[in-house]
């Protein structure tokens, strides 16, 4: 079944309105977790859709899923807005495309992602040690850098970095059995 995003990427500009309607809820959820302010989150979601209009046709399905790509743009737009308001950076952080361009196509992993549900992901997060889960939630869903997390938790920054690295590795390994089962 052709998605709104696929139609938009194929040149159907009219599909963009439907795409906005489809992803407003998830994008808002991603933005409000970073900003903790519904009004700012609305602004960030608008930013995200404008970026999506400008860069949507660069999306390469071989390098990632549509949903994660769009929600990464929304999350980055929220982090960008927060940084601009804090006057920490004058320039914008990049959108998802630059990071996604670093991905090597991996059909097997894309099969894992295609079947991954929110429930399964939350279950995998729940299997992490609590201190690692805390760091990954702060870093990914709240957009906090290790230095900020270390300050809040009164931990050495190196400890937070180690926990983040371990958490990401374990999360990926937790999902790996599914991946291996799919491999020929």
């Amino acid at each position: 079944m052709t998605t709104h995003f696929e139609r938009f990427r194929a040149g159907d500009a009219a599909a963009f309105d439907a795409l906005v309607a489809e992803y407003t809820g998830p994008a808002f959820a991603a933005a409000v977790q970073v900003l903790h302010d519904p009004a700012l989150a609305e602004e960030a979601v608008q930013d995200a859709f404008v970026r999506l209009w400008q860069r949507g046709r660069q999306f390469d399905p071989a390098r990632g899923s549509e949903r994660s790509w769009i929600l990464t743009i929304a999350r980055n737009a929220a982090i960008d807005l927060r940084r601009k308001r804090a006057r920490a950076f004058e320039r914008s952080i990049d959108d998802a495309p630059a990071v996604y361009a670093m991905r090597d196509p991996d059909d097997t992993w894309q099969s894992v992602i295609a079947s991954l549900t929110g429930e399964r992901l939350r279950q995998a997060l729940g299997e992490l040690p609590a201190e690692q889960r805390d760091v990954i939630v702060r870093a990914y869903y709240r957009g906090q850098r290790p230095a900020d997390i270390a300050r809040e938790l009164a931990l050495p920054e190196g400890t937070v970095r180690s926990r983040l690295r371990l958490a990401l590795t374990k999360l990926r390994d937790t999902l790996a059995p599914v991946r291996e089962a799919l491999e020929p």
């Binding site: 899923s65 949903r67 670093m102 929110g118 992901l121 869903y141």
Partner: peptide
């Protein structure tokens, strides 16, 4: 790390 990050987008 990129793969883990992609998976995390499904947790909202």
């Amino acid at each position: 790390f990129l793969q883990a990050a992609e998976a995390l987008a499904h947790g909202y």
